[in-house]
């Protein structure tokens, strides 16, 4: 039972790391500003959710295996950070995109030659 839970926690963390990495890859590879918002908003949110839940599960599993008291404070802090990022990541994505839209950054429509230029 404990081994299964530990494998689950490891899998969650690795998957979260993979999602966080591919989110950054998407930001690097997408052709224009508005497309880059998509990986920044979603992949990062899932990545942090998976990594933090993996960490919390791991803390629980290890303290159960050692028959020590569960470190509730650390788990509470992990949940607090996760919730905080869950709310602020879409909000800051929206703030950036709105500012860019108001300033008039042009969207990319499929022409590979034209990219947005620096002001």
């Amino acid at each position: 039972m404990m081994e299964i839970l530990e494998y689950v926690a490891n899998g969650l963390m690795l998957l979260g790391g993979f999602f966080a990495f591919s989110g950054s890859l998407g930001i690097l590879r997408m052709p224009d500003f508005y497309s880059r918002l998509h990986p920044a908003g979603t992949a990062d949110t899932l990545g942090q959710l998976l990594v933090f839940s993996g960490l919390a599960l791991k803390i629980i599993v290890i303290s159960l295996a050692d028959e020590a008291a569960i470190d509730g404070l650390s788990i509470g802090k992990l949940i607090a950070i996760s919730l905080l990022l869950f709310v602020t990541t879409p909000a800051s994505t929206h703030a950036i995109s709105r500012a860019a839209h108001l300033r008039g950054v042009e969207p990319w429509t499929g022409d590979p030659e034209r990219e947005g230029t620096d002001e």
Partner: peptide
């Protein structure tokens, strides 16, 4: 653009 940089720094 500036906004790309802000987005990248946020990530």
């Amino acid at each position: 653009t500036v906004y790309d940089r802000v987005l990248a720094v946020n990530v």
